[in-house]
Design a protein around this nucleic acid. Structure first.
Length: 184
DNA sequence: AAGCACATCAACCGCCAGGCG
DNA sequence: TCGCCTGGCGGTTGATGTGCT
């Protein structure tokens, strides 16, 4: 016997959410709060599985979401965080209030990857794509980091020996404890 | 205007970890 | 301690939009 399905698939809607479904979900969560996603669809009168409701709420309906284009600052922050955390989209999203992991993941795959490749940087390793450049260190933030190091009077030799991400990215708060986005 | 290719992003799928009985 | 259930995560898909020929 395999796992039991997360929901009764045969009675569930799939695909894009309708305005009415959105309204039902919002209304229910406003009244009862988040949680118990499995029983939520039935309680809210939705023919969706709990997972789908959760995803819709988190990625689209939450009132604290910041819709619209990513700023240049967010862009660079995502690149820096990705160089430190890899594809840990939820952790990256936790550092970007109003942004969701799904949104960041999509943005990474459609915009940032291409941007890094055009800069000659491997988006996965954050190292130079050109093998003739044998610099072993993380290079996604080379230009910014050099400027940053100049600002703080840091010697290149010291930098190349440094393995502390906190030192490499002092602007990034690496406290990964969980708290609501508005508290960051 | 039509057809095609490419880009975007919402939503789904499957796996995993943690809580709980 | 074990097994089930649920929530959460990352990868992937597919529908839709947009630009180009």
């Amino acid at each position: 016997m395999g796992r039991s399905p997360c929901c009764e698939k045969e009675h569930n809607n799939k695909g894009a959410w309708t305005k009415e479904e959105d309204e039902r979900l919002i209304k229910h969560i406003k009244q009862h709060g988040e949680g118990c996603w499995r029983s939520l669809p039935k309680a809210a009168g939705l023919l969706r599985c709990g997972k789908s409701c959760r995803l819709r709420w988190i990625n689209y309906l939450r009132p604290d979401l910041k819709r619209g284009n990513f700023t240049e600052e967010e862009d660079e922050l995502i690149i820096n965080l990705h160089s430190l955390l890899g594809n840990k989209w939820s952790l990256i999203a936790a550092r970007l209030p109003g942004r969701t992991d799904n949104e960041i993941k999509n943005y990474w795959n459609t915009h940032v990857k291409r941007k890094l490749i055009s800069r000659g940087i491997d988006p996965q390793t954050h190292r130079c794509l050109n093998p003739s450049n044998k610099s072993p260190r993380n290079v996604s933030m080379q230009t910014d980091d050099i400027a940053m190091r100049n600002d703080i009077g840091f010697k290149v030799e010291e930098y190349s020996n440094c393995s502390s991400v906190e030192f490499l990215h002092p602007q990034i708060n690496l406290d990964l404890s969980i708290r609501p986005p508005h508290l960051y």
